[in-house]
Amino acid sequence: MLRHTAKIAAIAVSAVLLTTGCSSDGGPGGASSGTTVQVRVLDMSYDPAVVTIKPGDTVEWVWEASLPHDVVSDDDAPMSFASELQTEGSYSQTFDTAGVYGYHCTPHAQMTGEVIVEE
């Protein structure tokens, strides 16, 4: 009977470990870090203009502008993303794949930025 109870306990522990291991959304090699980095959308600039993050991290752009701006991925970015044209609020994007993601403001071509995702 003791042997049977030990087997059941081992199966239960294995099930818990398996479930925990499967809950990661970070892809092969481990869990995502899940960090959020903020970029301020100011009148005519992003601050900071360049951020470096890890796969699975999120960038949140926060509007502090009187003019309407947006955040739109460059044509050659590894992934497309775009916010609404707005003067307040925020927009978030999670980046799962390493690469350099250039972006810009549609009405203001001089407003540019980069998200660098490094393993």
Rank of each mutant, 00 (worst) to 15 (best):
V72Q: 06
V71G: 00
G34W: 00
A49V: 00
S80L: 06
T19H: 12
L42P: 05
W61D: 03
T5M: 11
P78G: 09
T112D: 02
V72W: 04
L18I: 13
V71L: 00
P55R: 14
Y101T: 11
T52M: 10
V100A: 09
K7G: 06
E60W: 11
L42G: 10
I8F: 09
T35A: 04
M44C: 05
T20N: 13
C22Q: 01
M44V: 11
L17Q: 08
P78W: 03
C22I: 01
I8H: 11
S45N: 15
C105N: 00
P107I: 06
D57S: 13
T94A: 09
T106I: 07
P48N: 00
M1N: 14
G89E: 02
I53D: 11
D57T: 15
S66E: 15
G89D: 04
A109D: 12
T97L: 03
A12Y: 02
D47L: 01
D43E: 14
G34C: 01
S24F: 13
T94H: 02
T19C: 11
S45V: 09
Y101L: 12
L18M: 11
V72C: 03
G34I: 00
R40S: 14
G102L: 05
D57I: 11
S33N: 10
A98G: 10
A6V: 06
V62E: 10
S66Q: 15
D70P: 00
